[in-house]
Amino acid sequence: MNDDHLTEFAGLPVVAFTPGTRPDEPRPPAGEAAWAVRGDWANEPYRDVFARFMDAVDTTQVTALVIGFWGFDGAGGVGARTLVEAAGRFPNLRAVFLGDIVDEEFHISWIQHDDITPLVEAFPALERLEVRGGLNLALSPIRNPNLKVLRFESGGLPAEIVRAVTASDVPALERLDLWLGDPQYGGDTELGDLAPILTGERLPALRHLGLRNCVFQDEIAAEIASAPVVARLETLGLGMGLLTDRGAEELLAGQPLTHLSTLDLEYHYLSEPMMERLRAALPGVRVELGEAQGAAEPDGGDEDDEWDTEMYIAVSE
Rank of each mutant, 00 (worst) to 15 (best):
W41K: 13
S140C: 08
V49Y: 00
L147D: 08
A16P: 10
P28L: 13
R38E: 15
H208S: 14
E249A: 14
E291I: 06
E219S: 11
S271D: 02
F97N: 10
A36M: 08
W35V: 03
G20H: 15
A64W: 01
P256R: 05
H107A: 14
V96A: 05
V84M: 00
V230T: 08
G133I: 07
P183H: 08
F97S: 03
V230K: 00
T117E: 06
E32H: 12
E234N: 13
T189M: 07
D24H: 13
T309C: 11
W110L: 15
E249Y: 09
G237Q: 08
A159H: 10
W110N: 15
I101S: 01
G192W: 12
A167N: 09
I111L: 10
E250W: 09
A122E: 11
L242N: 09
A36W: 10
E317C: 11
Q112I: 04
P124S: 13
F90C: 02
G237C: 06
V57W: 00
L137N: 03
V120T: 07
G20M: 12
I101W: 05
P13I: 09
I161W: 06
T262K: 09
D100T: 00
E174I: 05
W110R: 11
I142T: 02
G76Q: 04
D100N: 01
L129V: 02
F9S: 01
H5Q: 02
Y267E: 03
A125P: 08
P29I: 07
L238E: 03
A248I: 00
V170C: 02
I67E: 02
A296G: 15
T262F: 08
T189A: 14
T82K: 01
R143C: 14
A295C: 09
A248H: 04
D114R: 05
L157D: 05
G77P: 00
D177Q: 15
P298Q: 14
R279I: 10
R286N: 14
R128Y: 12
F106N: 12
